[in-house]
Design a protein around this nucleic acid. Sequence first.
DNA 1: TGATCTTACGTTTAGCGTAACAATA
DNA 2: TATTGTTACGCTAAACGTAAGATCA
Lengths: 264, 264
Amino acid sequence: MLNLYELEHLLAFAELGRLSRVSEHFHISTPTITRSMQHLEEAFGVSLFDREKNRISLNPTGIKAAEQARLLLEAHEHALEEVRNYDRAQHVISIKSCAPAPLWTLVPEISSAYPDRILETQILSIENIEQALADHSCHIAVLPYAFPDSTPYIREQLLISVKKEHQLASCKSVSFADINGYNFLLRSEIGFWDKLCREKMPASRFLIQRDNTEYDEIARNSMLPCFATDLGRKNGYSMPDRVYIPISDAEACVSFYIHRRGLF
Amino acid sequence: MLNLYELEHLLAFAELGRLSRVSEHFHISTPTITRSMQHLEEAFGVSLFDREKNRISLNPTGIKAAEQARLLLEAHEHALEEVRNYDRAQHVISIKSCAPAPLWTLVPEISSAYPDRILETQILSIENIEQALADHSCHIAVLPYAFPDSTPYIREQLLISVKKEHQLASCKSVSFADINGYNFLLRSEIGFWDKLCREKMPASRFLIQRDNTEYDEIARNSMLPCFATDLGRKNGYSMPDRVYIPISDAEACVSFYIHRRGLF
DNA sequence: TGATCTTACGTTTAGCGTAACAATA
DNA sequence: TATTGTTACGCTAAACGTAAGATCA
């Protein structure tokens, strides 16, 4: 019966051409490689090499055997991957959301419903989530519109926050058109909101801060307007010295829909 | 890294359900199987079994792993077969002929042209040879008609042989119609001639003798007419107390054509 | 009590490295 | 002379079987 590690030796020999190179490559002695090759010939039951006194090379059958070795090793890798992925799918619930807010409530809900499962959350673009839905690479998808087999989950209203001294502070509401042209401080990982804002406010520039503490520091100490949402404020993302103003456009208020794949 | 023999254990366990059955099946001890299963879990890097105090069973991942084990073992078998077939094709020249006569000269010719090769000859029906040509399962094909990439090789004339006392003995030639109704002694392994005779002489019965010495014995000691050919007589298949009469029909004289696949 | 699986322990095997050798460029 | 592949030999680690233990039907 073949040994997979010997097939690796064979494949390496097919590429490197010398037993000595193979032994270097695997950090083992040359006699070991010699024996591997001898054992491979036994296992295949055919001659694989042309042997001269101090030269060895693959004969046509040996070349064929090396090809088969490659296929078999690939099949081996594939088998490992299949089983590991399957096992992972048994233990992990993968949630892919287009925005962070739905996760704040969804994760605790799922977590307590499936206490023995590990939750894996990702915030992705709408396109990526649609693809994940299509190829079944997540268990729960959250998108900002209704789609097949989805159920409504939560609504979120986009706001802007400005310092009390800011010229917009007295507005009761603003439209994207009103604020187009202002430069905004933007927290990264706000999901699809990012793209929406860029589309609606082409004249604005967005200063992205990946680090949350840096973002807070800058927001506290600058006049730059920021984005926020009603759900974000409930969740503690609120600053006392800032005024929060809703954006009146229809697109600034979204309903998130959830798709759950089976019983996990 | 996985061991193929351990995958066999896993597959057997998936089928037999008990480690003890697996150990019986492979004629090894139970502890060995226990260890195989433990090592498989290590190699896959995931848990494969639900273990109770004195019961072990595959968990869902384990079932998946057993499926992958089957695929991998099949891939292994396939790899061995591929290499062995390839090796065989390197050392053997396979000749498939519709009749024995062309082989009498063809085999020595090929044999001396390729002295290091083993010749494998088969006499088959025309249909089987056409299929072998199509799926490249022979190096040389001999058929009784011209076909793509074929070259003419040799002609053979079908004869009948009768005892000197036989009522046909005085004929200079006969047609299939003349001899239709006579019962004939027939040597097996005469290839496509067999089928031709049955078609042309539906009223005749054919007494087949597989064993050549038995055939000779019966031919020598009975009045039954037999078939022969000019090439057969040259090759020593000739009896002094018999008269050989050619069959006049066009179909009774055939040209054999040869197709050679590449340089082997 | 018999069947099943696991652990412990001692033995056997086979896999590996060092050393030595033969052949080559 | 340096490089390459093979064989010989001794050591180590892995694989195996026997024995014994635990649990369940």
